[in-house]
Computed example of a mutant assay.
Amino acid sequence: MTDVAVLGAGMHPWGKWGRSFVEYGRVAARAALADAGLEWRGVQSVVGAGTVRGGYPGHVAGAAFARALGWQGARVASVYAACASGAHAVAAARAQILAGQADAVLVVGADAAPKGFFAPAGGDRDDDPDWLRFRLLGATNPAYFGLYARRRMAVYGDTAEDFARVKVKNAAAGALNPLARYRKAVTAGEVAASPVVADPLRLLDVCATSDGGAALVLGSMEFARARGAADPVRIRAVSTVTPRYPRTVLDLPDIATDSGCGTGPGPAGAAVPFRASIARAAYEEAGIGPEELSLAEVYDLSTALELEWYEDIGLCGPGEGAALLGKGATALGGRVPVNASGGLASFGEAVPAQAIAQVCELTWQLRGAAGARQVPGARVGIAVNQGLFGHGSAIVAVR
């Protein structure tokens, strides 16, 4: 048995609050502990998802959060995996529980993001992929979001109107989420009228940078049952696979591994695109397929990227994402709602927190506690993300 129970989930609302990431994490942690009905002193371990922009406390996030909650002897660990940090923190906590090292583990991620584009965090150095992209190529994140969008337009015939429909869908869901930063429905016309950021993507096609925090209390199934939780939400699989590159490019600068480049493991050694391999590894570990999903939370840095995730997680074939969206299949009330939370379109990026926030949403949905955005009868969900340096991120939750 590889299941671990989600005993509690909590978040600090996303926004621009002007406070330390540690404060956001402390609030989220307290909310998750309250949801679990567990005192802080009952936690044996804390795993913090790191933020390199948070200075020294960001590099030792586990200890920073433990200190903020009050030293009580718990072991600590800190995990940094860029945008996949939250999923890697969940993986570390799950490993501790399955190894019998702890009955209850607190996982926390939080960020206080700067306004505008993310700047390189490592300084001017040629082993920093951000520096290489930003300074040598002039490619801030929206630049390659735009390249992705142009490729889909050229290869699959996607249109700017297709991309706008993603934003309209996610904004409608986010308007129902009290934790979201942007709680306002938008129209396709409003998307089209917003300023161009990286052609063909406009301001409302691209997610913002945000402050926010998210936390989970994970426990062994035995611990959950002993506390009266007979049927808790369970994390059944966590995928943190890395890409594979042809040997001919191994010596080239590693500047695009957060962009879905490269391939990953597939059946009988066959290569599959990196993002698809992230989800495939999670499906294989969980023993399920995409046809069993009730909902999905995906990493919508841009509207065009969400369409690609539909294909990568197996909701449809390559190039069919826009058609699936057009049928309403991924909207609330559709066959497999995607980003019922509102996604990054409604929250923005709080990097170490976002993969944890995705699991919070899955937890509330699988409990039937998501309010006006509830997916009826939700039983299986997947959360997918990915991080710079080739960090995979997929989590399957079931009930």
Rank of each mutant, 00 (worst) to 15 (best):
V6D: 01
P13N: 13
P13K: 14
G15N: 09
G15I: 11
R19S: 06
S20N: 15
E23K: 10
G25Y: 05
V27S: 01
A28Q: 08
A32W: 05
L33I: 10
L33Y: 04
A36S: 02
G37Q: 05
R41G: 13
V47E: 10
G48H: 03
G50T: 10
V52H: 07
R53W: 00
G54Q: 03
V60H: 05
G62R: 01
A63N: 12
F65C: 12
F65I: 15
A68Q: 07
Q72V: 13
A74P: 15
A77P: 00
S78M: 03
V79L: 01
A82D: 02
S85M: 04
A87I: 12
A93F: 07
R94T: 12
A95N: 04
A99W: 00
Q101M: 14
A102K: 04
V105G: 01
V108G: 10
D111M: 07
D111N: 09
A113I: 13
P114G: 11
D124T: 13
D124M: 02
D124H: 09
D124F: 00
R125P: 13
R125W: 12
D128I: 09
W131C: 03
R133G: 11
L136P: 07
N141G: 10
P142I: 14
G146I: 10
R150D: 08
R151K: 15
M153G: 04
M153D: 03
V155K: 09
V155S: 01
V155F: 11
T159I: 08
A160F: 05
R165E: 15
R165W: 06
A172H: 05
A175P: 14
N177E: 12
L179Y: 15
A180E: 08
A180Y: 06
R181L: 05
R181S: 11
Y182W: 14
Y182I: 01
R183T: 03
E190C: 03
V191R: 08
V191S: 11
A198C: 04
D199N: 03
R202T: 11
L203V: 05
T209I: 11
D211Y: 07
G213E: 04
L218F: 08
G219Y: 04
R227K: 13
G228Q: 06
P232H: 03
P232F: 04
R236D: 02
V238K: 01
V241G: 05
R247E: 14
L252Y: 00
P253G: 09
A256P: 03
D258F: 06
D258R: 05
G264T: 12
A270D: 11
A271D: 11
P273N: 07
A279Q: 12
A281I: 09
A282V: 10
Y283C: 12
E285K: 15
E292P: 08
S294G: 15
S294W: 03
A296G: 09
A296V: 12
L301R: 00
A304K: 10
A304Y: 09
L307V: 08
E308Y: 03
Y310A: 01
E311R: 13
D312S: 14
D312C: 14
G314E: 02
A322P: 08
A323F: 00
L324P: 08
G326Q: 06
G328D: 07
G334A: 11
V336K: 09
P337R: 09
P337H: 07
G342P: 08
G342M: 06
G342Y: 04
V351K: 00
V351G: 02
P352G: 12
A353T: 05
I356F: 06
Q358M: 08
Q358T: 03
L362K: 01
T363V: 05
W364G: 10
Q365F: 07
A372D: 15
Q374I: 06
A394L: 12
